[in-house]
Nucleic acid binder design. Sequence first.
DNA 1: TCGTTTTTTTATATCTTTATGATAATCTGC
DNA 2: GCAGATTATCATAAAGATATAAAAAAACGA
Lengths: 225, 225
Amino acid sequence: MKTIAVIEDDIDIGSIIEAALTKEHYRVLRAYSGSEALYLLEKQTPDLILLDLMLPGLTGEELLPLISGIPVIVVSAKVGIDDKVNALMSGAADYITKPFSVRELVARVAVRLRESEKDNASPVLAYGDLSLNTLSHEVAVSGTPVKLTKTEYALLKLLMQHPGQALAKSAMLERIAADTPDCTESSLKQHISNLRKKLRDVSGSDYIEAVWGIGFTLRLVDKEW
Amino acid sequence: MKTIAVIEDDIDIGSIIEAALTKEHYRVLRAYSGSEALYLLEKQTPDLILLDLMLPGLTGEELLPLISGIPVIVVSAKVGIDDKVNALMSGAADYITKPFSVRELVARVAVRLRESEKDNASPVLAYGDLSLNTLSHEVAVSGTPVKLTKTEYALLKLLMQHPGQALAKSAMLERIAADTPDCTESSLKQHISNLRKKLRDVSGSDYIEAVWGIGFTLRLVDKEW
DNA sequence: TCGTTTTTTTATATCTTTATGATAATCTGC
DNA sequence: GCAGATTATCATAAAGATATAAAAAAACGA
């Protein structure tokens, strides 16, 4: 569950935002002034900050440079292009002008949260019991290492980068072409088969599912001994 | 060319808005009451809706939650902060209070239209209990997954992209030709039949309705056990 | 070069999907 | 209601995809 700090002196607007975010199952922290925000951020580390620029005491502009490591979305009534540029230059992740639509706000919050997750991207992809380390090229199923060939590794990595997404065979061929330039659709099937077998030998479950007429997808399926 | 629905009972105000939007080369649809609006939205899918809150019959407040997938700008004489909060919370994209300047209205319309174009990148189409994920190719009826063939999937996707709109058989054939080049009008009927059966088996309702002499349309119908 | 590993090709069994024709049900205009 | 046309469903055969195994070809390291 993600925590979002709402720094806004207008109680009405702050409440709108809080209600909307709560509805989306975020945890919301409120602060009504710059100094209060500073105090809050010493105690807590939210995943994202919504910051009004016009605050009593310490203003948002002054506060913004003090925040680091947490994405900040600036919410402001100021409309000048300069304000926007300044905010983004000072490290804001995004900028929303009042009046804003709640839906838009929620959408942007979701986007920025997702982005920040990716930034922290560790070199290891995980999906279900699968883990794949892009640095060491190690693959393991619930801890047990699995030896894969280069093509198998490329395929699994591609699938794990788009979990649950249906990947067309042609698209897969293109995207592993760097590793195996002369892999055809029929040999691809063979590799998928081999990959499946290796994973199945260790885990019992089938991870790679065929999407009829399209290609393949990575999906969690109940074990079916 | 974008279509905008103006839902406003005051004929003078509605005409002013229509004139301004027409001048900007939008296509304008008018409705003068909530129920009329509902009827209109069954037949047509505008790109944006301008909604007056004080309508005879079904009020704007009641209508607003029923609209989904189309940005709504609420136009109202009400000025209380609560009205604004309620409107935005119910999914309105923006809020304009009367009296408004025509220039401002046009500007906001343009902004929200631009936004909605970007937002519409959502990978999941929804209609009633139906949901279709264009990335994973998954289709579900109120959460229950349904397995569709490639052609069935293509057809349902097409219908869901134009909900409530009558699609000619010839038009449908053209637009799924990429997937199934040699599908004829008679086999199309077969696919529709199969698709209907699969959806009916899960939900009990019939989503796809025949439009006599034309083709088919997606429509919510009461279950009829 | 030899033996091993990996990749591609070939072959085959199985399953799914699609197209089609026949039949039943439904709709429209009269 | 009736006749003609349209639409819905069923059954089935043909076409198309997939999964696996086994063999041939290519790549690689010692």
